[in-house]
Design a protein around this nucleic acid. Structure first.
Lengths: 215, 215
DNA sequence: CTATACTGACTGTCCAGTCAGTCATTAAAC
DNA sequence: GTTTAATGACTGACTGGACAGTCAGTATAG
């Protein structure tokens, strides 16, 4: 207990980095299984098998099935929003370009990646994990909507946009991205739509509505 | 097996109507429980208790838990879309009024009723019931989008709308309703938004975009 | 008395979480 | 350099509880 401990301390057999890497393997495996079966029907035996470890090993990294799910979600959110906060509100660009940049980011960093699946998983399981819904709301939704609202308000202030609907309800601007995400996972299989084209059409409509004069 | 069966058939002790009524009680109870816990975590003992019957009784009406879920969803969809197909495409009305009528219908017949919960349940469980997703797509989505597309195309043909984005992607028009639905069930509790006002803002934007001239 | 509706205790299965034991690695002792 | 001891990483058979579905038995209506 004294400051300079007498007890000889070997270097740990596994470094922290190695530990993190293995945890990531487990989280990746868990994402696959949870996506396939949903939280309740996912078996930890399957997660372990896919990660190439025994079930007991999971419990060296995570204290419960629920904690595994939460770790998985937490590891997949948050990151990109920070990047967005840095990048998008480029004061030099027009509000339109900022909006387009935001959508480009959405497409390349979320809709086009594994994060899309995490968001979907979160949407379908969130009602059973209220605390997680709150974290996601605070860490992603609120911050994302703040960025959007900022763009919209600056657009209005500069006279580039002539109405404030998006500043009041930034949700309206990203609604089609949500549809895209859900459509992909539910219906794309037997009724494919061109997501890119749809989002492009949305931006066209949105810009026309914002730049047009209210009647 | 012969056409005119010999076997005596008493009048059934319970009429078909009574049977249907009890089935409905069971489905109502099941909706409550499935909403609260999700499909996998819902216990049939709880469904039975809430319906005021014993668990065995459930199996006189429905052959399995999965069938119960499917019956529940099927009983809650389809109906309103038929009504909509009758009502909305009133050729006398302007395309704008038709769109507004459709949104009014959405608010009063779905977002404001128990059906909202059925849709939410379907969204969250559909990935585990692919066949049900297909039924819903065919019976609701396709028909709903067809109505929307009809309105949009007539609007363009009459010169009321000046662009065809909604005719091409009717999903864009209802996307905010989906956001409303999900927001209600996930975040409304701790970050309430005014759904009515949001949908009104959406319609404002949409009409301005459709009536404005493409640049 | 008979047919039907209903009941709820019971069974078989499934799986999260546990833990006694194995294996591999490194350090100390000689 | 070799043996022995200590440590941490990992394993997987096992347990306890939960719950879908069953069915022998009871109640009720005709």
């Amino acid at each position: 207990m004294t400051a300079g401990q007498r007890t000889k301390r070997r270097a740990p057999a596994r470094s922290e980095d190695e530990r993190q890497a293995k945890l990531q393997t487990i989280l990746d495996a868990a994402l696959d299984i949870f996506l396939e079966k949903g939280f309740a029907d996912a078996r930890l035996d399957d997660v372990a098998a896919r990660a190439g470890v025994a079930k007991g090993t999971l419990y060296l990294y995570v204290p419960s099935k629920q904690a595994l799910f939460e770790a998985l979600v937490r590891s997949g959110i948050g990151g990109p929003v920070g990047a967005l906060e840095q990048k998008v509100p480029d004061p030099a660009a027009s509000a339109e370009d900022q909006l387009r940049a935001l959508f480009h980011f959405l497409r390349t960093e979320i809709l086009g990646t594994r994060r899309r699946d995490i968001v979907r998983l979160l949407l379908t399981e969130a009602s059973r994990f209220p605390e997680l819904a709150e974290v996601y709301h605070r860490e992603v939704i609120v911050r994302g909507l703040r960025i959007l609202r900022g763009i919209a308000e600056r657009g209005v202030a500069r006279g580039e946009f002539h109405s404030d609907e998006i500043a009041r309800f930034p949700q309206l601007a990203i609604a089609p991205a949500l549809v895209a995400l859900l459509w992909t996972s539910l219906f794309q299989r037997f009724d494919p739509i061109d997501i890119e084209a749809m989002l492009e059409a949305h931006l066209t409509l949105l810009m026309r509505a914002l730049k047009g004069h209210p009647s």
